[in-house]
Nucleic acid binder design. Structure first.
Lengths: 311, 311
DNA sequence: ACTCCCACATAGAGTGGGCTTATGAGCGCG
DNA sequence: CGCGCTCATAAGCCCACTCTATGTGGGAGT
């Protein structure tokens, strides 16, 4: 074997080889909480040897001892405590995923039918659904995502009980309550010239520069077009927020995204925010329902959750 | 089979059965970014049929069509775009996990040796490490977590190049720079009587109430004891932040935690924050290094990252 | 119109990780 | 001193994921 054995480049990916599976992380959290492999195994519905083996293989994979075994139980090592907290973040994200995915399976018999715009469905709804499930565990929720017009349509056709929109105006026939505000942010990779500017960006500069954008018709795009006077120039048009972020991170150019979409990327400096002068890139997020039909039952529960937690 | 077939209670867990594995989520993100199953497969180093089958089985598991296949490529469905964004959050958490775990494998030959307090290592460091890797991909980092005394010791013994502490004072022999501030927050489950209070909590009430706490000697505990005058009464003492959170969520009682630890729990209202009057529960987070030895090389890179992103 | 290339799907075989049951060993407590 | 708990080990099963090899369909270029 000479050096000719080609290393695969692996620019991204391979995470799954280095990060334990969700089941293993869940098990680790249970061990931390219950102080015993056996009890954790019972809680997850597997046998004690399975738990033992799984923790051991996780330790092998990470190259770090995670738990101190003793005949009186198991406690986390120092490294184990760290790993457990990092695992907790993954599991929380997985819970949000689960809550959302469950609502996507359009069950006809759902007790609460929600229609929401993309941004809200992506970033806020999963958390609300988790909270709702904590209060009313047996409420089945179905979710339909679409733009403002679609949301209004479904509400008026009695195909949804509660809607959420992010437009600049409220569709006719609907009552609404503002639940939060969302700002659009201009971002670039840290290496981009804009990242080193001292003066804020002018609206004219922004309008003159080709940007990485969602496709025409998306809520984000509408707000941006309105703010700039209808002329955002696309460098690329992509079909999902994820794709826009990935493209911006890789340095393809400046992008405009909701602040809700940019938690991790900004704090880890994969992207940096560029201040913008004299442009109103803010919009209200609203809950909506047919005029006169004040939400009741599960819809009311969800509504009160969103108002309480709305920033 | 009568109704005697006992449903397993599954109060927590079972997530792994409903959420696809990390490898599948990574694959989905690659498909979204590249617009083709085959290209995504190539990027992840698997074959096209494997990717095809894996996406299909994920769709079966979720009960939702995620991608529209066509002879010209694959695009996400509406539901697929939502699912992809939720998946992105999981993968981001997994990247932080990976960055941290990699630093935990105490490699002797690391170019940058970091010693950090628990809270910083848990919640801030992984993000910094990701950002550092983006700038300097070949910098191997090792991490050792411990309290302020341990951090100081390792720095002075030249076993670490850069330290992070969260104490109230800077250990002697070290220079420091404040990189962020951290507040401690009193939280309860939403059902707790305190959640319905109108007046802020008084320090004496807090001191008189048994609390869910980290064990004595933890940075969090020290700050709380100092603020209350040395007399926080423990209801339970637990060994990890995760365990404290879980216990508080389940309604065991009030807990005191760093705001850094409470992202998801507060916004999903699994926990609510209780205002506190006339108690200073704030502390500075500092980078530290031996007097005279201003950080250079990788240490300087990391330091400048943390200062830039510190709140 | 024919061909080439890319897209994705299907079929059948191999492998490995995780699960189970069964059993053994260390510590503490009555 | 034995019973309870703890965790570890061993042997066998099974399924998910993987591969190679092949088939089908559409767009682009000649």
């Amino acid at each position: 074997m000479s050096a000719a054995e080609q290393e695969f480049p692996e620019p991204t990916g391979g995470l799954a080889r280095r990060v334990p599976e969700l089941g293993a992380l869940e098990l680790l959290l249970a061990v931390a909480r219950l102080g015993s492999l056996g009890r954790a195994a019972r809680e997850l519905g597997i046998t004690q040897p399975a738990a033992s083996s799984r923790i051991r293989s996780m330790e092998r994979q990470l190259g770090v001892a995670l738990v101190d075994r003793s005949p009186t139980g198991s406690r986390l090592t120092d490294a184990g405590a760290l790993v457990t907290d990092w695992a907790q973040r993954i599991v929380e994200a997985a819970e949000a995923f689960d809550a959302g995915a469950q609502a996507l399976r359009d069950r006809r018999d759902s007790r609460l039918r929600v229609a929401a715009s993309m941004t809200i469905a992506e970033y806020l709804l999963p958390g609300w659904l988790i909270a709702l499930r904590a209060q009313r565990p047996d409420t089945a929720v179905s979710l339909h995502a679409g733009n403002s017009a679609v949301v209004a349509e479904r509400l008026l056709a009695d195909e949804a009980d509660l809607g959420f929109v992010e437009g600049l105006s409220v569709p006719t026939g609907l009552d609404s309550a503002v639940i939060a505000h969302d700002r659009l942010i201009v971002v670039t990779a840290p290496g981009h010239p804009w990242a080193r500017r001292r003066r804020p960006l002018e609206a004219t500069e922004l309008a003159a520069t080709p940007l990485i954008l969602r496709e025409k018709g998306s809520g984000t795009r509408q707000v941006l077009d309105a703010a700039l006077g209808g002329l955002a120039r696309p460098l690329i048009e992509l079909s999902s927020t994820t794709a826009v972020k990935a493209s911006a991170v890789s340095g393809a150019g400046p992008a405009v995204l909701s602040e809700l979409a940019l938690g991790e990327e900004l704090s880890a400096r994969r992207l940096v925010s560029i201040p913008v002068a004299d442009v109103r890139l803010s919009r209200a997020l609203r809950a909506v329902w047919p005029v006169g039909h004040r939400p009741t039952g599960p819809a009311r529960d969800l509504l009160s959750l969103t108002v309480a937690s709305g920033g």
